[in-house]
Each structure stands twice: as C-alpha cells, then as structure tokens.
Design a protein around this nucleic acid. Structure first.
Lengths: 341, 341
DNA sequence: TTGTACGCGTTATCAA
DNA sequence: TTGATAACGCGTACAA
C-alpha cells in the first residue's frame, strides 16, 4: 500500500459530481439556496469517494476551528471534572470540540496556556473565576475572542460569567452554625492566592461571624492544599489551640471529609462535640457518617449553560453579562447544637 | 479602535527584519543551519511587532495541529479525570494540546467522536481499552494516525497500549478472600458492554473462584452502573439471596463504598461478618472505615507514559507495542477471615 | 441557483 | 545559509 495514498479532496468530489467546488462547499456547510438536485448529487459523490473535509484547511479559510478552549485549575478535583464533563457533552450538540488546559492555580501558567490556546485558534475561551492576570483580559479583548468565566459570578464589568455567589452560601453556613449556638468557629480554607472562590467563601464565613459578634481570629483560619489528608492535618492544628472551636467551616467537601475523619480519630463525636460543614456537595457528601452539611454547587448546570452561552457569543448573539445559578444549602447531620460544655 | 485591526503576519515580520518569509519560518521552528545573526534580527522584529504565529495556517502547511485527541468513557469518574489531568500536564511539556471527547461507554458514540477528532486533524489519538468498533481501527490505520490505548493492556496485535493487567489483580483479590476462608463470593461489577476492563476484572474473580472449587453462580454476579447508590442497591439485592455471600468483590472503589455503606446500614460488621474489596484505590479508599482493600491503579503514571509514548510515535519513533504497569494489591481492613457460622 | 478565482497564513521545495 | 515561490485544502466574494 502506498504511504501517500492521495486523500480525496473537495475538488475530487466536485469532479465526481460534475459540479463546482463552490457548490460542494455549499452543500457541506448547509448554505441556503442550494437546489435539492445539487445537494443529492454532491452527497452521493461524497459517499462514493468517502470524502472527509479537512479541518485545518477549513479552519484557515473560515477562521473557525470548531473548538473552544477551557482553562481550569485542575481536573484532579471531581467538582471541576464534573463541570468539564457536562461542558464537553453539551458542546458536542453544537458540533464544537473542547481543548482543555490546566494551570494548578498558577495564574502565570494560566496566562501562558491562554496564549497557546489563542495561537491554536480556538473560537472561544472558558475560564474559572475572575482572578486572572490583567494581560489575559487584554489578550482576549484585543483578539475580540468570545469568552466566558464560570463558577464564580461576582458583578465584574470585565468578566462576563455564569456561576453562583460563593459568599452568600458561605455566610449562610456560618449563620446556620451561629444559630445553633456556636460561638467559636474555625475555618479550613483552600489557599486563596489566585482563587477568588476560596476568598469569597472565606469572606462569607467572616461576614457572618463578625455580624454575630464573634469574629474569626487569624489562628482559627487554616489554609491548606486540596486533599483529605490535608483536611485532617488542618484539624490537628486547630486542636492545638487553647480555646478549641466548636464548629469548623471547610472550603470544600474533600477538606471537610478529612476534618471529619480526624475529628473522629481524635474521639470527638460529630456533631455532638463538633460541627463540620463542607462546600460542593460531592456525591459522597450524603454518604459520609454523619452526612455532611454543605452547599450544592451546580457543576453540571454550569457546564451546560457555559456551553450554550459561549456558543451564542461565538455566533454573535449577545447574552447576559452575568448569570447567577442557585447554590443551595444542604443541611445534613454533620452540624448540630453547640456543645454546652 | 478598528474592528479589523490587521494582525501582524509572518510576512510583516520578514519585511521588518529585512529577510525572507522562509527565514522567519525557520527561526520560528528552530530549524538547523540558521545563523545567529539572522535569528537575532528575526526575534527582534517579532518582539517589536508582537507577532503571534497563526496555528491554523501552520497546521494546514505542516500537517500538524499540535494537539492530540483523547477518547474517554467519561470524566465524571475521578479515576479517569486523574489520568486525563496527568496526560494534559505531560503533553504540555511536549508543546502539545489535548482535545477531549467522552462517549459514555457507547462505542458508536466513540466511533463518531473519533471521526470528528480525525477530521479536526489531531496528530494522534488516545483510547481507553481495546473494546472499539472495528471501523475505529480501520480509520486510524488508513490515516496512518499514531494512536495508543491505555488502561487495559492485554496482548492484542491491533491495539498498542500502555496499561495494566486487569485480570490478575482481580484474581489476586479473590484469592486473598479465598485464603481467608471465604467460600461464598459475590461480585458487584460495572456493566461489561463495551468495557473490557470490567470484563477482565470479572474474569479474574471467576478464575480464582473456579480454581478454588467454589464458582460464582449468576445470581451472585450483579451488574450496576457507576455510583455509590448503585453499589448500595447491588448490596440489597445480594442480601435477598438464600445463601448470602460472605465477601463481595466490587468492580471499582465507588461501588465498594456503596456496598460497604449498605452493609453497615444493614447492621453488618465489616469485615467480621462480610468482607468487601474495591478496585482503583481512589484517594478516599484508605480513609473509609474500615479502610478499603483494593487495587492501586496507576492512573497518573498511565497519563504520563501515554503522553510520552504517543508523542514518540508522532515523531516517528517506534515504541514498544505494549507496556504493562504495576497495579498492586492494597490490603487494608475491609477484608478479613470468613465468619465461622 | 451555480461557477470562477482568489485569499487564508504558514511550511517546504528547490535553487542560489 | 538564505531566498523565491509553490503548495496546503477549503471558503467566499463576485460574476454569471
């Protein structure tokens, strides 16, 4: 067999169907004003020759590659991979592919990845949150490239976004604990550098605590990397304090899981002796023992809406600058009345 | 500002540097035999003009798009997203992007997604396992497109792959239980259609059981979709049997988690009254109570090796047809001696 | 409604 | 080592 078996080109199809190349192209792109007769001739020829259009040539000529780029901190966190999963599935409906790039919460890496994506010629870009290098925005604007942020959705004129309010649910979680009589709250947060979601949640915890007259001292705010073991370590360090917290607010469910395990390992009853909350509502949250009080983050819905919204923007349709989804509290059994000492 | 601010082209750089377009291209692609003087002139011009090469044009001319495609069943399973995460990170080193497509274990969808990826012009393809429509192989071969399977790695002349043996560790898990005195084993498996990994694991369980003279009757093999709740339901149905199993082998950790929860909800002690095993060694496996006996699947290592291997093939380097990684048993406390009745 | 001919922005071939 | 120029394969004004 020949190494270079010549691939069938659009031109070959045109010759086979005895029409012009322009006509073949029109049929291919479902252009208006093509006679049924022409369409059938062309489609028959395409079938006979097994013709497959060349994406790269099409991209060069049409200035569209049929794919968007997504920049996410990591796929090693199920809450993000769930979003990417639904994003990709929905994009497929629009006949659009997905190019992914991760940056481990390093905004310089993110910027670099964005450059690469743009150079590739992506038709649009999805970003997470509003924490980005200023150059990222400049790049997108100068190229007039459609883009959309997700996950976080504070009111920001620069960044159009579909997401949810990270602060309010966090505040509500804290209020829930305060209502249960807790006065010594602690927080186990993800690192807040380059992560406005983590900052917003922390801010929500703070707001509620201060409004209730029992602000969070620095030593009761622990920042650790993502992970179960990390959550457990954070718990240990909080237990080293003179006045131990009676409730621990965690930045995500995974940390909460670690905290809960460490608490139980330390012989503490949850929630009788200590209350614990998460954030995300991962599938396992309701199966923990006790089931975890948390916030249900609409990861799947974000993926779908971002797909639809970005495609609309690529097609030149103006969509709302900002769309807020629900992230409801899910009260379960990991929170209870403060211990009476 | 102009809507169509003309982008700087390679030609502009050539003019600015007073050299030919060919020379600019050579500098850009680090071609050999370029004088230092030329390189510097060109690089200076590039900086001055802020030139960024156009990926689509480059792709058309060079027949390389600088991205590979990955076909995975889903990203909604952390074991796959962990692999994709490491794959993408490693590809970045090779200056290669990642296009992902999911197919929900539907091989016709997979084939369709493969067509789309090929049409896009990907430089290579990653697939999971060896269960694919025959047309998929034909497509890849006819195009002479570099490809690599992963996750599963049975000896198959058609499919080069980097993965691990799914059967042997499964057999070892069952042998471990048999050695502990269990005679009535049961299996909670993922659906086996289009999933050779699930089939291989099931086969491993079967082999050990038969070799020990206590084969698995059909009613003690339950197939359910991925999920914690699904695992729990599978457990319920096994408990409805006349002669209940004393040990349950699960196709993955998530199912095992569901089974364990349901067992405990039913008042059974694990492992005193019933032993449970998983497969994957997800991060939470060692934090379950009791910690889960399972098989450590090298998801991250697969991603890295697949990246290196596929890039090598794209560069025309011949790599081993098959590479087997370790997937060691991790014996923890969810398995113990069979109850003595 | 269909066809002609050029443009898309690079890379690669060949000659110098 | 460098330069001129022909591919690369398709989309799309513009003309018919």
């Amino acid at each position: 067999m020949n190494k270079e078996m010549q691939r069938t080109l659009l031109e070959d199809v045109a010759r086979e169907a005895e029409v012009s190349t322009a006509s073949v192209s029109r049929v291919l792109n479902r252009a208006p004003h093509v006679s049924k007769r022409l369409r059938e001739r062309v489609e028959a020829a395409i079938d006979r020759l097994g013709y497959v259009p060349d994406g790269t040539a099409r991209a060069l000529a049409s200035r569209r590659i049929g794919a968007i780029g997504a920049l996410v901190p990591t796929l090693d966190n199920p809450i993000f991979s769930a979003m990417i999963d639904s994003l990709e599935r929905r994009l497929k409906r629009h006949d659009c592919r997905l190019l992914i790039a991760t940056y481990r919460y390093d905004l310089d890496d993110e910027l670099q990845a964005l450059r690469t994506l743009i150079q590739q010629g992506v038709d649009g870009v999805v970003l997470v949150g509003h924490d980005h290098r200023p150059a990222a925005l400049t790049l997108l604007q100068r190229r007039q490239l459609p883009f959309l942020t997700c996950w976080h959705a504070e009111d920001d004129p620069d960044w159009p976004g579909i997401g949810f309010d990270n602060t309010a649910p966090a505040r509500h979680l804290a209020e829930h604990l305060l209502m249960l009589g807790h006065r010594r709250l602690a927080v186990v947060s993800a690192p807040t550098d380059g992560n406005d979601r983590a900052r917003a949640r922390l801010e929500g915890f703070r707001q509620a605590a201060e409004a209730a007259g029992c602000p969070l001292p620095p030593e009761r705010i622990v920042k650790v990397d993502y992970g179960i073991a990390e959550g457990a370590e954070a718990f240990e360090s909080l237990m080293g304090l003179d006045r131990r917290p009676t409730a621990i607010l965690c930045g995500n469910d995974t940390l909460a899981f670690g905290v809960m395990l460490a608490a139980q390992r330390a012989g503490l009853q949850v929630p009788r002796e200590i209350s614990i909350t998460g954030f995300d509502d991962l599938p396992q949250a309701r199966f923990m023992s006790p089931p975890l009080t948390t916030v249900a983050v609409p990861a799947g819905e974000i993926g779908r809406q971002v797909a639809d919204g970005l495609i609309a923007r690529i097609d030149g349709v103006t969509t709302p600058h900002r769309r807020l989804l629900d992230a409801p509290l899910v009260l379960r059994e990991s929170t209870g009345p403060a211990p009476t000492d």
